[in-house]
Design a protein around this nucleic acid. Structure first.
Lengths: 134, 134
DNA sequence: ATATTGTCGATTAACTTAGTAGAGAAGTCG
DNA sequence: CGACTTCTCTACTAAGTTAATCGACAATAT
C-alpha cells in the first residue's frame, strides 16, 4: 500500500468531518483551509466520496458536506481501498483487487506478501475514523 | 509499500539466486526463463543490484551472476527499499525516505501510518532470502 | 577468431498523478 | 425576484513513472 496525495487528502478530510460529525455540514473551503488541501482538488475528492456513499451534501448558503454514517462505522481500510486501491504489496495477493503479478511464480514470496497484506489490512480494518478523533 | 514489476522481478531473481547460492554463477537468460522475466528487463535489474553490491558477475562463456553475500545476510527489506523505495504507506512516516506529506497535518493519522510502517518493516527486516528457499 | 555473456545508454509508449479551469445547478436571503 | 453562495461536473494538462525495448560495446572462454 502506498497512499497518493489524493488518498492522504481524503483521509485528512474524513478525519476533519469526523471531528465535526453531528454539527451540521462543513464547507469545502473551510476544510481546505484547515487541512491545507488545494480547494479545487478537494472538491473532486469530496464529490467522489459522496458518490461512494460516505458523504452527504447540501448546496447554497448553509451548504457543505457531512458524513452519512457515524465515524465509528467507517474504517480507514474502506477509504484507503476506495482512493488508492489494494492494501496488498503486490496485486497477486490482493483480496479486493486481485490481478496476476510476477510474485505468483514463487510460493515463499507469495506467502510473505500475504502475511504483510494481512497485517496491514487487519490494522486498517480495525481502525475507524472515531479512533482518529483526538 | 507497493511493489512495481521491477521490484517483484528483483525479489524473484534474488530468490532464484539464493536457491543456487554456492553453485557458481547463473546466466541472465536462465533466470529469465525460469522466472518468466523479460530478459532485457532483467539485465537492467541485475546490473543495478550488482552496482548496489548485492551481486557479483562474470562475463563470457561461463559467466553469470551470483550473490555477493549469503542469502541469510540479505533481508527482503533491503531489496524492496532499493528497488521501490519506502516501505511506509506515506512519505512523512518513512524512516529511510522521509519527505513532507499531507498526513503530517494530523497526529492521529500519522500515528496510525507509523504503526503500519513498523509492522511492515519489522516483518521485511526479519525475513532474509534464506527464509524464502523452499 | 569466434561465440558467448554481461554492460551500458538511449529511447519510447502508455499510464498515473496532482492538480487547474470554467461553466452550470441548487439553495438562501433580503 | 435577484444576488450571492456553495456544491457539481466535465474537460484538460504538465510532469513524472513504469515497463519495457534496441542496439552497440566490452570481457571471457575455447
Amino acid at each position: 500500500m502506498r497512499l497518493s496525495a489524493y488518498g492522504e487528502y481524503a483521509c485528512l478530510a474524513m478525519v476533519d468531518l469526523s471531528q465535526n460529525y453531528g454539527k451540521g455540514p462543513l464547507k469545502i473551503k473551510d476544510i481546505a483551509e484547515r487541512e491545507q488541501i488545494p480547494q479545487k482538488f478537494l472538491e473532486q475528492i469530496l464529490l467522489t466520496l459522496k458518490r461512494a456513499g460516505y458523504l452527504q451534501s447540501k448546496r447554497g448558503f448553509h451548504g457543505g458536506y457531512e458524513l452519512s454514517r457515524a465515524p465509528k462505522q467507517i474504517t480507514v481500510a474502506e477509504i484507503v481501498r476506495f482512493t488508492d486501491g489494494a492494501v496488498a504489496p503486490v496485486a497477486s495477493v490482493s483480496s479486493h483487487f486481485y490481478a496476476h503479478s510476477p510474485s505468483e511464480k514463487n510460493a515463499a514470496l507469495t506467502g510473505l506478501f500475504k502475511e504483510v497484506r494481512d497485517m496491514v489490512s487487519t490494522k486498517l480494518e480495525g481502525t475507524t475514523f472515531a479512533d482518529l478523533i483526538i
